[in-house]
């Protein structure tokens, strides 16, 4: 892979190669926590932290890891960072730790982290891998927050727990139930695919 500048890494991870709507990975947790903005923010931060640091570590020791056990090594590194996040949440934000429940642990099996480790950290130096992890984490968080914004606003009439819409608003119970997450993610994919499709077309027309 050619050497990429940090700016390119960011634009790839956040937009043109966004893990959620381009590569369609890591959506398990993306859907589950998006019924409130606060949860999504914490989940996004946790995932960004784990992806960035595990990419960094995996890339730092990539020359010393035997090829056939590298998956196991990667999983263990990821699990170690997830444990840090879990303990941190339990110690400082016990109420969030309770609402997120098993989903913090499920960061381990989030395909984004494994995907980045395999696709990027395995072939690049530690520092770019770190940036790549952050960029993908931001891309993931952005989608999460976008979906959560609509679900919380329409489901509860609140944002980050503060009442935004007045009494006249009838809460849509469907928005806090599972189906709306599927629909909203589908809509996000639809919109972004269309935009990216159009950009590609205009680029072809220019050249």
């Amino acid at each position: 892979m050619a050497k990429q500048s940090s700016k390119e890494i960011f634009s790839l991870g956040v937009w043109s190669d966004n893990p959620v709507f381009r590569q369609l990975i890591g959506i398990c947790s993306a859907l589950a926590v998006t019924n409130s903005l606060t949860n999504s923010l914490i989940m996004g931060l946790g995932l960004t932290f784990v992806t960035a640091l595990s990419s960094f570590t995996i890339s730092a020791i990539r020359q010393f890891t035997p090829k056939h056990i590298r998956m196991m090594v990667q999983v263990l590194i990821i699990a170690a960072y997830v444990i840090i996040v879990d303990i941190f949440l339990k110690a400082y934000y016990p109420e969030f730790s309770k609402t997120l429940g098993a989903y913090v642990g499920l960061i381990i099996t989030n395909c984004i982290i494994m995907g980045r480790a395999e696709a990027f950290a395995q072939k690049n130096k530690p520092w770019p891998s770190f940036l790549d992890g952050i960029a993908n984490g931001i891309g993931y968080s952005a989608v999460l927050l976008f979906i959560a914004f609509f679900r919380e606003l329409m489901g509860f009439g609140t944002l980050f727990g503060f009442q935004i819409l007045g009494d006249w608003w009838t809460s849509w119970t469907i928005m806090i139930m599972p189906p709306s997450a599927f629909f909203l993610l589908a809509i996000v994919i639809w919109i972004t695919h269309n935009i990216q499709h159009r950009n590609e077309k205009s680029e072809v027309a220019k050249s």
């Binding site: 369609l24 469907i174 139930m177 189906p179 997450a181 629909f183 994919i189 639809w190 919109i191």
Partner: peptide
Amino acid sequence: VPKGLEGPGITLIVTGLMAM
């Protein structure tokens, strides 16, 4: 299926309907 929804998009909508 509308162009942008092909593949994953429509699958998610179908899943959403099943969830309902």
